[in-house]
């Protein structure tokens, strides 16, 4: 089928003797938002790290956009169109918001190799636009990120991802350290992605959030995918029983 954006077949990762991820079969369709849930150590982050090529998988295949891919690193994954918000922030603290948003994809007035002259005005304008479309409120974009709260920084990080999102966005617990209002902002950004038809993999512990936002919920347990349920065909209790292993210990294909 041509509307499959991402597919993993038998994706496996062992750390020495630890089977962090075992035979994960997963598909993501165009425009679909999928949540990945599970207890700590269930293999959610490991799963994400194999897709974004932060780590190299032990076995299995990843198909992205119809191609059998094997990225050498997160950079190649990003160039292919997978934008990721990592648990650890990937921002340069001493730079302002536009510089962070455009880090590595700066716009230039004049190209002179390494001494190319930056087009700061356009980058600033586009930053304001991007923050507007993603509904992120940053009081002063010209301040270094260092002086901002954790929530604001996370919003910059997410706005950066959302602004350049092309084919797939992955967020690994984007609201883990955020306050109520900041969490609401991040959720708005996610809704914006849905409207724009950008597919999303959301790793989250927050079931309320998951049920609010996504189309489908994939449950990890002990390194395996134990359930893949449409949001309207399940409920919180159901998900919890999969997470804790009351249900679905026989394993299921996603």
């Amino acid at each position: 089928m041509s509307d499959i954006i991402l597919e993993t077949r038998g994706l496996t990762k062992h750390y020495g003797g630890v089977h962090a991820l075992d035979d994960a079969n997963f598909t993501l369709r165009a425009g679909e938002h999928v949540a990945v849930v599970g207890d700590n150590g269930a293999g959610k982050s490991t799963f994400v790290r194999q897709i974004t090529a932060v780590e190299q998988r032990t076995a299995g295949k990843v198909f992205f956009d119809g191609q059998d891919v094997s990225f050498a690193g997160p950079l190649q994954a990003r160039e292919a169109g997978i934008e990721t918000v990592f648990q650890t922030l990937a921002l340069a603290d001493d730079l302002d918001v536009p510089s962070n948003l455009f880090l590595g994809r700066e716009l230039y007035k004049l190209r002179l190799g390494p001494f190319s002259i930056l087009d700061r005005k356009t980058m600033r304008e586009r930053t304001l636009e991007a923050l507007k479309t993603t509904a992120v409120k940053i009081p002063n974009v010209d301040n270094p990120i260092r002086n901002m709260s954790g929530g604001q920084r996370q919003c910059v990080s997410i706005a950066r991802t959302a602004a350049f999102a092309s084919k797939l966005v992955i967020m690994d617990e984007p609201t883990a350290a955020l306050g109520v209002q900041e969490t609401a902002q991040v959720e708005n950004i996610i809704r914006g992605l849905k409207e724009r038809g950008v597919p999303l993999i959301l790793v989250s512990h927050n079931l309320r959030q998951v049920f609010d936002l996504v189309d489908r919920i994939v449950v990890f347990r002990r390194g395996r995918i134990v359930a893949s349920l449409r949001r309207d065909e399940t409920d919180g209790n159901d998900i919890v029983s999969y997470i804790t292993g009351v249900k679905g210990s026989e394993g299921a294909a996603a």
Partner: peptide, 27 residues
């Protein structure tokens, strides 16, 4: 001028700020 207005300057500050993030940004 170079440190303020060019890619060289911007990336120098970025590397000093967060080398890992700068690397991940494709620089």
């Amino acid at each position: 001028l170079i440190m303020t207005y060019t890619r060289y300057g911007k990336h120098s500050y970025a590397i000093g700020s967060n080398e890992q993030a700068t690397r991940m940004s494709g620089i």
